[in-house]
Design a protein around this nucleic acid. Sequence first.
DNA 1: CCATGTGAACAAATTCACAGCA
DNA 2: TGCTGTGAATTTGTTCACATGG
Lengths: 208, 208
Amino acid sequence: MPEPSEFSPLTVNRLSVYLRCLERLRAQGVERISSQELGRRFGLSPALFRKDLAQFGVSGIRGVGYEVDCLADGLARRLGLDRPSRMVILGAGNLGRALARYFADDSTFHAVALVDVDPKKVGNRIGGTVVEPLERLGEIVERRRVEIGVLTVPAAAAQESYDRLIEAGVGAVLNFAPRQLRSRPDVPTKNVDLRVFFEELGFYLRGG
Amino acid sequence: MPEPSEFSPLTVNRLSVYLRCLERLRAQGVERISSQELGRRFGLSPALFRKDLAQFGVSGIRGVGYEVDCLADGLARRLGLDRPSRMVILGAGNLGRALARYFADDSTFHAVALVDVDPKKVGNRIGGTVVEPLERLGEIVERRRVEIGVLTVPAAAAQESYDRLIEAGVGAVLNFAPRQLRSRPDVPTKNVDLRVFFEELGFYLRGG
DNA sequence: CCATGTGAACAAATTCACAGCA
DNA sequence: TGCTGTGAATTTGTTCACATGG
């Protein structure tokens, strides 16, 4: 039973954001940057940036700042991006197909299969992969060493699909279905209901 | 200049989650529910649920609980979902097309246009709409009363596309491009980088 | 009596501010 | 000198626990 991580999701998510900023700096040829300058350019908090890095044991150079290149590599490694993760996408609807195409040959997150219950969808070619039937899920996860399951099924099918993913042996699940899952505490599970973002924006738009 | 909302994004997002749960209960024919029972069923905090509702001036019935139907309607109204919002999607890539199809004739968030710079994409029919050229953005936003702009362009085009949306007069922006935007403080802007979710999960999967 | 509504207690997250080192 | 690294202060968010009222 993996003890609850010592790192908060907020911190981990910021690491991703920092990494994106650093990659941009690297592309621009910037070699060193101070936390203040980084904060100014990307609208982030310098103090929080330093705290976050400290928590992951990353150090800068006093009086100077951080080495962009080295820091980017360090963050990528700490996020586990130095070796690829293999994913199966469950649900070949609009979002499932979009993700399958996007991650078809991504080097860090690789979609190795796209699965659907609908026999009419099975066999369709999406990006580089072919839609496979749900019955093969167990075999797919085992044989292709799938670590992450991605749910893009309708709300009504979410819980059953989740249970199947767990049974098949995936180590983590990203759920895009708009349904609060009854999730296993020992399997990292993240719910991302895209409609929530639209609703939040709508709320503030209407003068919330 | 709209003063910063008195409601935190966390609270607003929870309202969406509550609404989803209530709609499920309604579909199941449940008429009344206590905060405790709701917490038990969906893994939410009863006290927080009550606090959140109180903040929005919604009351239950002491000794009984909440009327599912009435509460769902109340939350939907407070989120501004009782009247539809009109959106333009900028970028007809994988995600843009998926969202366009998903929201083609949604009753609360309606995608009234899908726009792209690429002349090869212009004219393509996606769901009910046809891809239109970027030059027409201003006209589209004005004539079709677009309130929300959705960015699904590549990172490199994000900032310029954002600026164009603002100039065209949209009231809020949802940015799916993996780039930290320099955003206008008076226009509600939400950054949603989907890769962050994958990276978070990957992190915990690797035993973070 | 029972679940709400809420102030008070607690916990988490962020910012402040400055000592300490390159 | 200038920026990092970090304890202390502050702000924000959540839970507790109970008085209140249908």
